[in-house]
Design a protein around this nucleic acid. Structure first.
Lengths: 225, 225
DNA sequence: TGTACATCAGTGAACGCGCGTTCACTGATGTAC
DNA sequence: TGTACATCAGTGAACGCGCGTTCACTGATGTAC
């Protein structure tokens, strides 16, 4: 066994199991037995389960953030200080997301992991991602800000997250949805096909008319907390 | 203690803890100690942790599906066989979702639970929801079909799920997003406020132009699986 | 009205189990002299 | 070239812990006669 083949085997197995069942539901024994690796090897190489989870993310997010940064560099150079159109920014992000996992396991796993990062409690994970990759996201949102000067800041913030929700939710729940879609419409759906369908929806959502101000205080907010 | 006050106390506490931390991360000991109830009471009244989880969902989804059915009855009567506009259908769904938890704990909890139902592995839960509440969802999608006759079936299917993703993702990840939003914009965001912001985005997304057919086979699908 | 019995909500303690982590140890490889 | 030592990946077994569940039991209330 080559040096630290073990590390790779652990990461490869862990990312698949985490994506399938979540972090709490995947035990180190699940991972190490499937990877045919000693149980203690996880703690030996990574230190803890938490650190393993972060390492799994880093293996996707490090190349992603690096490439996204250089894609944005290129874009800024090309537009020489002029505002980059929203469609181009979204397209660039989509392209980068699509290229990263081509060398890794699969886009499905990448998206499921992103979905879990959002939805599972795992506070440490959100903090880690925020801290490690917050800058590239900030850079992107700043460019989006310049591309949509008429959108109020808060509105743009929320719409970006709506958009993120659409994409992550769809691509991370892909398997279940794909099954239903194929059963109902006898039509195969590839990830690229979905991205193609997502594009006009996302663009239309970002460019939607502003919400009606009169709605704001129609009713008292009856929700606790 | 009145008869089966215990049952209510368990459900009230469980739904909050489940919403906060997920199912696997919430132990029966967490629930029973916070509810000041005997540990064995959960198994006595519900039979198992799984059954407790389903009971928590039923307490929201039973009234929801009942009300949504009657709201749709009303709508169909009002439109006397004519197609109901998409906006009206979406509005009706939103209104129903908003009224249900007004009597319960909070909308936030309801949405977090829906988000968890989608994102956590918990196969039994998705099956349970599908089986118990699938009919009302089918009825709704059929009405949406009639309201959008120009949308190809597959396109409508995907857009409905895009929309679902946006709403569930946003409302279930609300706390984290709200924190960021308040930090950045010093502006409190209520759930009703978010629903108001979601409306035009969702409508625009559903009515977006069809995807460009030429994109379909621009590149081979390089993604594994 | 009184007694015997059944029902039922709730309890306290224990069960076995799988979990993440730790630790003393092995055995191969590299380095110094 | 040979020997002593250090480094490092990996291992096997055990640690204590918290988990969901079970079980024998209690004590209050309702029912039959």
């Amino acid at each position: 066994m080559a040096q630290s083949d073990t590390v790779t085997r652990i990461l490869d197995t862990a990312e698949v199991l985490f994506a399938e069942r979540g972090f709490a539901e995947t035990s180190l024994r699940n991972i190490t037995s499937k990877a045919r690796v000693n149980l203690a090897a996880v703690n030996y190489h990574f230190g803890s389960k938490k650190a393993l989870i972060q390492a799994v993310f880093a293996r996707y997010l490090d190349p992603f953030s690096e490439r996204f940064h250089s894609a944005l560099d290129e874009l800024e150079a090309r537009y020489e200080g002029r505002d980059i159109p929203l469609e181009v920014l979204l397209e660039t992000m989509a392209t980068t997301v699509l290229t990263v996992p081509a060398e890794r396991n699969s886009l499905k796993v990448f998206m499921r992991l992103l979905g879990l990062a959002y939805s599972q409690a795992q506070g440490h994970l959100r903090r880690y991602i925020q801290q490690q990759y917050g800058d590239v996201f900030s850079r992107f949102t700043e460019l989006v800000r310049r591309a949509t000067p008429d959108l109020p800041d808060a509105e743009r913030f929320w719409r970006l997250h709506f958009m993120l929700g659409t994409v992550i939710f769809t691509l991370s729940g892909l398997d279940a949805l794909r099954d239903i879609a194929e059963k109902d419409y006898h039509q195969h759906v590839s990830v690229r096909d979905l991205v193609r369908r997502l594009r006009p929806v996302v663009v239309a959502g970002m460019n939607a008319p502003l919400p009606d101000e009169r709605d704001v205080e129609h009713h008292a907010d009856t929700v606790a907390h």
